[in-house]
């Protein structure tokens, strides 16, 4: 009976929803029960966005993640808003290029990686989201790292297939950090 509740939060335009979508499809490939719930509203590029993903061996109850096992914070307001909701023993993955602050809680594990900088240096500046997801996959065993390409191929439309390679690289960058 294993359930992982994931919350990804940041600015609109950072790929918060896509990152969640990837994890949801990854769960689907692994035959898990999954749910993906975006925040929706009058949000736009630059506004706030978040997304709840649940990966479980059992049917998913509420799809709304109010107490995440893992939080990916892609900006400071998101970290401040959700840091206290993470369950004790949970994990917080912080994009340290964009967030100066440290997690003050001692009952959670925090991982800092300059995802935005790493993505920029590697030539895929828009994929900090996937760098962070790569790190999540390293630190949390909800889904295996193998088979990422197949998962991406399963939902990225053919006309954008050229983006699959760099998404794989971004995941690897985060995983190896």
């Amino acid at each position: 009976m294993k359930t992982t509740q994931i919350l990804i939060a940041g600015f609109g335009g950072q790929g918060v929803l896509f990152a969640g979508k990837f994890l949801a499809y990854k769960g689907l490939t692994e035959n898990l029960q999954v749910s993906w719930l975006p925040s929706y509203g009058p949000e736009m590029r630059g506004g706030t966005a978040n997304c709840s993903v649940i990966l479980s061996e059992d049917p998913v109850g509420s799809p709304i993640v109010t107490a995440p096992d893992v939080l990916i914070a892609m900006n400071l307001p998101s970290l401040q808003k959700y840091v206290d909701t993470v369950v004790p023993g949970g994990k917080i993955i912080v994009d340290s290029t964009l967030i100066d602050a440290k997690v003050e809680r001692t009952d959670v594990e925090a991982f800092y990686l300059p995802a935005t900088q790493l993505a920029k240096d590697a030539g895929f500046a828009t994929l900090a989201n996937m760098v962070l997801v790569g790190k999540l996959m390293k630190e949390c065993s909800a889904v295996p790292f193998a088979g990422n390409r197949q998962t991406l191929e399963s939902f990225i439309p053919a006309k954008k297939a050229n983006l699959i390679d760099i998404n794989c690289q971004a995941l690897q960058t985060g995983y190896d950090f």
Binding site: K21, A24, Q33, V34, S35, W36, L37, P38, Y40, P63
Partner: peptide, 10 residues
């Protein structure tokens, strides 16, 4: 409702 409309599940 908006939640079930917006969420994805298999």
């Amino acid at each position: 409702d908006g939640t079930i409309g917006q969420m994805m599940e298999p």
